[in-house]
């Protein structure tokens, strides 16, 4: 009896230790999962659930009445001005994305292929990022002093005799909003495109050159197709940032450049209509998810594999 146990014991021990090791590992895995799950719950699930809950109710004399009504969502799509403002914001976002890509591409291209020394590369990189050390507000405000009637641009043009009185078309309209947002968000496009261009193998370019391709052909047939996902990613970032902006329209926008975030802020503050604000928020989040899915698919499709 005693002998048997002594013989069998190690075997048994081994079995339990494997099992317990697995259990510990599983427990440890759970432990590792707790922070992301908690984060996801606290910062994503609960807020979205609250948003949904709020959007289904209504406000009566400053008091929130919970409910299960889709009225607010119907209003987003049927009552002026919500849908039109969402579309206007999307248009401003799109313009920002397009302008940012146009401005960013040559710079990223130069940075990736023409800067030979590391130091210069670092310097340019720094110049791209440095504006982000200044507050967003200051940068948006700066455009007022550039584009205004008494601004640098107008004064300069008058001094050069190009115009005789200040051009008022520069400031307080949708153009100045697009311009300001493009300036502010372009670094994101630069970094995104640059990261993609860096992936272009030099061997491909050398091979193309050996086969007699000229610079334009190399750009058109090799670099451009490979860089598309970077452009798409940069465009998505700049679009999203510009779409949700509310500072630029207030500072440099004209009488009709109201954006959807301004409307949401008004609904929260002035009208105290939180349910309506929540409904707009959810509609935008849904549109955002659709956009991101579409762009993910597009990025996947345009990605070149080596």
């Amino acid at each position: 009896m005693t002998a048997m146990t002594t013989i069998e014991r190690p075997v048994e021990l081994k079995g339990t230790s494997i099992r317990s090791a697995r259990a510990i590992e599983r427990r440890r895995l759970l432990l590792w999962l707790v922070p992301p799950l908690a984060w996801f719950t606290v910062f994503m699930l609960i807020p979205y659930a609250t948003l949904l809950y709020t959007s289904l109710g209504h406000v009566d004399d400053m008091r929130f009445i919970p409910g299960l009504s889709l009225d607010n969502f119907v209003r987003v799509f049927t009552v002026d001005p919500y849908l039109s403002v969402i579309l206007k914001s999307a248009r401003i976002g799109l313009m920002t994305a397009v302008f940012s890509s146009i401005v960013a591409y040559p710079l990223a291209f130069y940075l990736a292929f023409h800067v030979r020394t590391q130091r210069l590369k670092f310097l340019i990189y720094l110049l791209v990022i440095v504006p982000w050390w200044a507050s967003y507000l200051v940068k948006a405000y700066a455009w007022k002093t550039i584009l205004g009637s008494g601004g640098i641009l107008n004064v300069g043009m008058q001094n050069l005799g190009l115009v005789h009185e200040p051009v008022r078309l520069f400031l307080y309209n949708e153009f100045s909003v697009d311009m300001t947002l493009t300036y502010i968000f372009t670094p994101f496009a630069v970094l995104s495109i640059y990261a993609q261009l860096e992936r272009v193998p030099t061997s491909l370019i050398e091979a193309a050159r050996n086969l007699g391709a000229d610079g334009w052909m190399i750009f058109r047939r090799i670099i451009l197709p490979i860089s598309v996902p970077g452009v798409v990613a940069g465009a998505i970032i700049t679009f999203s940032l510009a779409f949700g902006d509310f500072v630029a329209p207030v500072l440099v926008g004209g009488p009709d450049s109201v954006m959807i975030s301004n409307v949401v802020i008004n609904l929260l503050g002035v009208a105290f209509d939180w349910p309506m604000a929540a409904a707009i928020g959810l509609v935008i989040i849904t549109l955002g998810l659709l956009l991101i899915s579409a762009s993910g698919w597009l990025e996947e499709k345009t990605q070149t594999r080596f």
Binding site: P81, L267, M276
Partner: peptide
């Protein structure tokens, strides 16, 4: 009906000139 007033105000702002 302040929410209604605000809606009118937002409609005015969103309207093109």
């Amino acid at each position: 009906r302040r929410a209604k007033y605000l809606e009118i105000w937002n409609q005015v702002k969103a309207a093109s000139k």
